[in-house]
Write a protein that binds this DNA or RNA. Structure first.
Length: 578
RNA sequence: GCGCCCGUAGCUCAACUGGAUAGAGCAACGGCCUUCUAAGCCGUAGGUUACAGGUUCGAUUCCUGUCGGGCGUGCCA
């Protein structure tokens, strides 16, 4: 038997009543919602008030007519008019019984919905350049993307998780040449290390590896390495580009070996890091492959054929202003090299050709200026830009001892994701990252994440789960008997609040999925845990009354299941003991 | 300058996408462990939702303007 969504059920009843009361206004928008005040019943609707204007009748009179049209239902105890014209519904004991039975029988699947209808959806996230360790900024994108993906899966989508690997382009060349320069340094070939090269110790580590594997095979004379290179002081970028060009010429095939070695090392390192963080991908998509298959060149030709490209100052420009962008953008530079934007267009074309119903890109908020041009390019290719959603993730500030931790990529003083994970633990990191709306700044309080108190939401939620596990263990009975418990015996305020909260879980999933907002699940779990802790403090579950004990255990067992399911979506463990 | 995001209790944040008396936690104060885990609970106090207009039965939510903050505005990736 499928889970019953009472909100949807009531909406359907009301829609039928609407047909009878106002045949000409059946498209009237209305909501069925949880009243803030429990005295207003289990659900309430604003239908009568929404109907007041088109029908020019008082809301309360309309409410009365609507109620008369509602059929008798085994789930609805009563429907009454309140306030300006709300209709408040109170559910029957049978309905409460149904909630608990659904939760217990569905188990790990309780809360799964059909909202996504099995549509294919792709979530692309992290996609950091494999030029060094992931830092705490990538961590937020990773946590958000992973939670969102699981959430969408739970909401009935067929989800594919993808990482776009920027393995082409200048940044990778810089990493490779940085590695080689460190290698030369090991062989006493000393060349001043460029200030805009990659400075981290991991680069020296790779140089040592290469030395161990291949000895001095890649040593070249210092004079040749810096030959004809412009002065660093005058133009450090040109200086670096000259070093790269010299390296390619001097090393030949060995350049590709070093390049590939560095890429593979960094990619594996990032993958291991993410896997430990509970973040995995179905597909690692190579940017380089877009060039190798000729798709980048073809997509530019395609735009050219369609008349969206013009040449100016020797470069090819995409006329993105036609599609609402602020200015036109270069896709191919005067030196013949394609820009990052060109491969990005090709990548998105490729995504669309893979037949997704929806494609989601998770980007750092500093990329928001790229939205217009990418969507513009899709439109220019005759594709539907509305199929692409871009979720922006703001940067996370780390707070220690009440002070912001200073970070800068330039100086190499950024905090790595690994450091963060070993400092506060994976669970705290995963939850703290998704505790805020993703497009808002996040202050990540390191001390709070480690604290063992009720202001730490990680422990607060996990503790509720662990407490229930201990009670069930203490009880020692058979959980299979619980779905049959007499839920009608549960009539206290605390019990009513928990039952309402449990019934809301599927709706909370849908709401979070619509908005791409896993943080609302975190808030839901905090609320559920709070309701449970209150209940725990005023009620014993293991009583002398066997029926009552079964009923209470059935309820808290349902709570345990929902906590576990919700935490799983967020990638946080649900411990049985703490 | 232009574009996007944001402004809610002293602090960090909610508010079911326009609903009923704007809610939590922290910080402050006062209570609750002989009982299934006190990493918990209960209570007190804290507000002109930045400001000024507008839209309507009804606005923290939508529109306009002002003030304040963040980000973006490369033939970089």
């Amino acid at each position: 038997m499928p889970q019953l969504d009472f909100r949807q059920y009531l909406s359907d009843l009301l829609a039928d009543a609407l047909k009878a009361v106002a045949p000409d206004s059946t498209d009237t928008a209305f909501v069925v919602e949880r009243p803030k005040d429990a005295r207003h019943g289990d659900y309430a609707t604003n239908l009568a008030m929404q109907l007041a204007r088109p029908l020019r009748q008082p809301p309360r009179a309309l409410a009365e007519k609507i109620i008369k049209e509602l059929p008798l239902s085994e789930w609805v105890e009563k429907a009454e008019i309140a306030g300006a014209g709300f209709i408040n519904f109170t559910l029957t004991h049978a309905a409460r019984q149904r909630i608990v039975r659904d939760a217990l029988q569905a188990g790990a699947n309780f809360g799964r919905t059909r909202y996504g209808k099995g549509q294919k959806i792709q979530v692309e996230f992290v996609s950091a350049n494999p030029t060094g360790p992931l830092h705490v900024g990538h961590g937020r994108g990773a946590a958000y993307g992973a939670s969102l993906s699981t959430l969408l899966d739970f909401a009935g989508f067929n989800v594919q998780r993808e990482y776009y690997v920027n393995d082409a382009g200048r940044q990778m060349d810089i990493l490779a040449v940085s590695t080689w320069l460190r290698y030369l340094d090991l062989h006493k070939v000393s060349i001043p290390f460029p200030p805009n090269g990659y400075q981290g110790d991991y680069v020296r580590d790779m140089a040592i590896q290469i030395q161990a594997l291949h000895g001095d095979a890649y040593v070249r004379a210092a004079a040749d390495v810096v030959k004809n290179a412009p002065n660093v002081e005058e133009d450090k970028e040109a200086h670096l580009d000259a070093l790269i060009a010299n390296a390619k010429a001097l090393l030949g095939d060995a350049w590709h070996y070093i390049h590939n070695h560095a890429l593979t090392e960094q990619l594996n390192d990032g993958r291991d890091d993410l896997t430990e963080f509970g973040v995995t991908f179905d597909c690692w998509f190579s940017e380089k492959s877009l060039f190798e298959t000729g798709l980048v060149a073809r997509v530019v030709e395609k735009l050219e054929t369609a008349g969206h490209i013009y040449v100016q100052d020797g470069a090819k420009w995409f006329r993105s202003t036609t599609f609402g962008d602020e200015k036109d953008r270069v896709v191919q530079r005067d030196n013949g090299l394609y820009t990052y934007f060109a491969s990005d267009i090709a990548y998105h074309l490729n995504k669309f050709e893979r037949g997704f119903d929806k494609v989601i890109n998770i980007w750092g908020a500093d990329h928001h200026g790229y939205i217009a041009r990418v969507k513009g390019a899709l439109a220019a290719l005759g594709l539907d830009p509305a199929k692409l959603d871009i979720a922006l993730v703001q940067f996370a500030n780390l707070i220690r001892d009440g002070q912001q931790v200073a970070m800068s990529t330039r100086s190499g003083s950024f905090v790595t994701l690994r450091d963060l994970r070993s400092d506060v633990g994976n669970d705290a990191a995963r939850l703290f990252y998704v505790l805020r709306k993703s497009d808002q700044h996040l202050d990540f309080d390191l001390d709070l994440a480690k604290s063992q108190s009720n202001d730490n939401p990680v422990y607060y939620i996990q503790y509720a789960h662990a407490r229930i596990c201990r009670v069930l263990e203490e009880w020692g009975g058979c959980k299979k008997d619980l779905p049959g418990a007499q839920i009608g015996l549960l009539t206290s305020e605390h019990e009513a609040a928990l039952l309402r909260k449990l019934a809301d879980f599927p709706a909370a999933i849908d709401a979070a999925a619509v908005d791409y907002a896993p943080h609302t699940i975190a808030f839901y779990l905090k609320d559920l845990a709070a309701d449970f802790h209150s209940y725990y403090n005023v009620s014993r579950f293991l009583t002398d009354d066997e029926e009552l004990t079964y009923a209470r255990l059935a309820l808290v067992s349902s709570v345990q299941q929902v906590l576990a399911n919700g935490l799983a979506i967020l990638g946080v463990s649900a411990p049985e003991k703490m």
